[in-house]
Amino acid sequence: DTINITLPDGKTLTLTVTPEFTVKELAEEIARRLGLSPEDIKDTHNGKTLDPSLTLAEYGITPGSTITLEIK
């Protein structure tokens, strides 16, 4: 299953994830792909900052969802 990550420059990154991924694991994968530190990444969905300890499923993030990435 894939989700879309909207980057600060407007580009989109597509990642393969499972509903059990935590937001922290997602940030780590994004950081790895972009050459950043996971601590520099802030993920938001529907205007809410995502708690790193919760899973994508707990936020109702499903395949095809879009998450907005902010760099701290």
Rank of each mutant, 00 (worst) to 15 (best):
D1Y: 15
T2F: 13
T2D: 05
T2S: 11
I3T: 01
I3R: 00
I3N: 00
N4G: 05
N4D: 07
I5D: 01
I5A: 02
I5M: 03
T6N: 14
T6P: 02
T6W: 11
L7C: 07
L7Y: 05
L7T: 07
P8K: 09
D9R: 02
D9L: 04
D9T: 06
D9K: 03
G10Y: 04
G10S: 03
G10C: 08
G10F: 04
G10K: 04
G10E: 02
K11C: 10
K11M: 11
K11Q: 13
T12Q: 09
T12R: 08
T12G: 05
L13W: 10
L13D: 02
L13H: 05
T14G: 04
T14N: 07
T14C: 08
T14A: 09
T14V: 14
T14P: 03
L15N: 00
L15W: 03
L15A: 02
L15I: 14
L15R: 00
T16Q: 13
T16E: 10
T16Y: 12
T16R: 10
V17N: 01
V17F: 11
T18M: 05
T18F: 09
T18R: 08
T18N: 09
P19S: 06
E20C: 08
E20H: 12
F21M: 15
V23K: 00
V23F: 15
K24I: 05
E25H: 08
E25T: 04
E25R: 06
E25K: 07
E25A: 08
L26K: 00
L26E: 00
A27C: 14
E28R: 05
E28C: 07
E28I: 09
E29L: 10
E29F: 11
E29W: 11
E29Y: 10
I30P: 00
I30W: 01
I30Q: 00
I30T: 02
I30G: 00
A31E: 05
A31W: 08
A31R: 05
R32Q: 09
R32L: 11
R32I: 09
R32M: 09
R32V: 06
R33Y: 14
R33F: 11
R33V: 12
R33I: 13
L34V: 05
G35Y: 04
L36G: 07
L36P: 00
S37C: 10
S37A: 12
P38Q: 07
E39R: 09
E39Q: 14
E39H: 13
E39V: 15
D40T: 12
D40N: 11
I41S: 02
I41M: 06
I41T: 02
K42T: 13
K42Y: 14
D43R: 07
D43H: 15
D43L: 15
D43C: 15
T44R: 08
T44A: 13
H45A: 11
H45Q: 10
N46C: 12
N46T: 15
N46E: 09
N46H: 06
G47P: 02
G47H: 07
G47T: 02
G47C: 13
G47R: 01
G47I: 10
G47K: 02
G47V: 04
G47D: 11
G47E: 05
K48R: 06
K48M: 15
T49F: 14
T49N: 09
L50I: 14
L50P: 06
L50F: 12
L50E: 03
L50C: 15
D51G: 02
P52N: 09
P52F: 14
P52Q: 13
S53H: 11
S53K: 09
L54I: 07
T55F: 02
T55C: 03
L56G: 01
L56F: 02
A57M: 11
E58C: 06
E58A: 08
E58Y: 11
G60Y: 02
I61E: 00
I61K: 01
I61P: 01
T62I: 13
T62E: 09
P63C: 04
P63R: 02
P63T: 08
G64Q: 04
G64E: 03
G64S: 03
S65D: 11
S65V: 09
S65Y: 06
T66N: 10
T66D: 05
I67F: 04
I67Q: 01
I67T: 02
I67A: 02
T68N: 10
T68L: 12
L69Q: 01
L69A: 06
E70P: 05
E70M: 07
E70G: 08
I71T: 06
K72L: 11
K72N: 13
K72E: 11
K72D: 13
